[in-house]
């Protein structure tokens, strides 16, 4: 790729994803400098990737349905000490369809981990009082400003045992050269942790983190989350 065209969307997406070499990146940056339309396309390319990551990322944090784990666990293992288990594995394998059906029935009401977690999440959010909502806003500002990605800042409600946590998960610069961070917000109450939302916020000139967008996992938009 010695003769690259920075206006080519294929080159631009590779730039957005850090797939270009240094020389090509410099060429793209020069073109971005003089072309606002190109900058807008770069923002769109980046936004769509963030959107996908924020929307589907939490699926990997869900508990794997029992019947799927059981399917793999029942597979026969070869060699060494594990060979003795082959017989038992074979038997549970044949029993599996019935187990799977029972599990499916159990899960039918919950519609999978994502929805179950979510509905709990939004009903928990509905129970947050005003003080806690204010605390959540302050906690988000503080965490995004001060924490390295992966670290969490928490706020404990003195009235209850509930704890809010905000964890920045990734940092990047948008095409306006502002710092943006993806974050997740969780609530722990009575030993149970629920995901409240995942979002992206960007830092303005005054050092304030403004929400770019966030995902509220779940089917129905929980009104109480709007602010």
């Amino acid at each position: 790729m010695s003769m690259i065209d920075p206006a080519d969307d294929r080159v631009l997406v590779a730039y957005a994803d850090g797939e270009l070499g240094v020389m090509e990146s410099i060429a793209v940056e020069a073109a971005l400098e003089r072309d606002p339309a190109l900058r807008a396309r770069l923002t769109d390319l980046r936004d769509s990737a963030i959107l996908l990551r924020v929307a589907y990322g939490p699926v990997a944090d869900e508990a794997v349905p029992v019947h799927l784990r059981a399917l793999v666990e029942a597979a026969p293992v070869t060699g060494g000490a594990a060979a003795a288990n082959d017989n038992a594995a074979g038997r549970s394998w044949r029993k599996l369809p019935r187990v799977a059906a029972a599990v499916a029935l159990l899960l039918a009401g919950a519609a999978g981990g994502w929805m179950a977690g979510t509905q709990r999440g939004s009903s928990q959010m509905a129970q947050l009082d005003t003080a806690m909502q204010v605390a959540a806003t302050m906690l988000m500002q503080r965490s995004l400003e001060n924490l390295v990605s992966g670290a969490s800042d928490i706020w404990r409600d003195p009235q209850s045992d509930a704890t809010l946590a905000v964890t920045p998960v990734r940092t990047f610069k948008d095409s306006d050269d502002r710092y943006c961070r993806e974050y997740r917000e969780t609530l722990t109450r009575g030993g149970e942790q629920v995901l409240l939302r995942l979002g992206v916020a960007c830092r303005d000139g005054q050092g304030r983190w403004n929400s770019r967008f966030h995902v509220v996992p779940g089917a129905d938009p929980p009104e109480e989350l709007a602010h």
Partner: peptide
């Protein structure tokens, strides 16, 4: 809210 997007929309 303008800043909200749902997984269903994605």
């Amino acid at each position: 809210a303008v800043d909200r997007v749902h997984i269903q929309r994605v």
